[in-house]
């Protein structure tokens, strides 16, 4: 079923070829937005956009490496030329290559920060430049509950902590221009990455979570749609956990 909530809007979702980003792209398209499926994998972005079009949505695929200023600026220029300025930016692209504090290399640390943190900055800067003159816009950053800290995730958690801090600074700076900036922090979401955990590890993690269940990418997508909507015009600088209560308490059982 298609709705008109975002009719006439242009949304750019990064890392949208699969997982949470893909769910967000489909959600916004299903509610009337023209959606740019941004991803570093051009073929996957095109296939994801095609899937949205097949069910009646408006979508185009676009390759973008969010860690590259040149690629980000070129992507925003192309979107503006083809569809119009971006109304909704969802910074979802991210990587997780942690191997613990003793194992992570300089290159892995720098790549994690470049994609997860610098990518948010570059895309938000490009979006803000076109949103400020129009006095409206929505920026939604996908962080992670892991920013609170987690075993073996010093690089990933640090990068997501930077995303939370950037969200608050951008919200403060852009509020007077009618632009809201918020952050979603997913917990255990049913994605291939989470399913790749050994069953006993996943079970232990779920036992330490109040609701005791995995979330779905669509749970995050629904929250993103709210924050992207006019209904949330008074919500800015917020960090909303979509985590089944994991942010409240998540000490796993001792092995």
């Amino acid at each position: 079923m298609f709705h008109a909530e975002f009719k006439g809007k242009v949304s750019l979702v990064t890392g949208a070829a699969s997982g949470i980003g893909n769910a967000v792209a489909r959600e916004l398209a299903a509610h009337g937005s023209a959606v740019v499926v941004g991803d570093i994998d051009a073929g996957a972005a095109d296939r994801a956009a095609s899937a949205i079009r097949e069910v009646g949505g408006q979508a185009v695929g676009l390759r973008v490496d969010v860690s590259s200023r040149g690629e980000v600026e070129a992507a925003f220029a192309r979107v503006e030329a083809d569809l119009g300025p971006v109304d909704v930016l969802v910074n979802n692209a991210g990587i997780s290559i942690d191997r613990g504090v003793r194992g992570v290399t300089d290159e892995e640390w720098q790549r994690t920060i470049a994609v997860n943190q610098t990518g948010v900055f570059l895309c938000s800067q490009a979006a803000a430049r076109s949103m400020i003159p129009r006095k409206t816009g929505r920026i939604i950053n996908i962080a992670s509950r892991a920013w609170l800290g987690w075993f073996g995730q010093v690089a990933y958690a640090s990068s997501k902590g930077g995303v939370v801090s950037a969200t608050r600074s951008l919200a403060i700076e852009l509020a007077r221009h009618g632009i809201t900036v918020n952050c979603l922090a997913p917990g255990l979401i049913d994605t291939p990455l989470v399913r790749s955990e050994p069953p006993e590890v996943l079970e232990r993690l779920l036992r330490a979570q109040p609701m005791g269940t995995l979330g779905e990418p669509e749970d995050v997508a629904n929250a993103a749609r709210f924050l992207a909507s006019d209904r949330a015009r008074a919500v800015t600088g917020q960090l909303l956990y979509v985590c089944g209560g994991k942010s409240l308490y998540a000490q796993p059982a001792m092995a």
Partner: peptide, 23 residues
């Protein structure tokens, strides 16, 4: 938004609806 059945994986949250006055 919080009452929406689709928000059933969000719990324990304190969401400010204050135009950034919490920040």
């Amino acid at each position: 938004f919080f009452l929406d059945p689709r928000s059933n994986y969000i719990t324990g949250q304190a969401l400010h609806c204050c135009g950034g006055a919490s920040l």
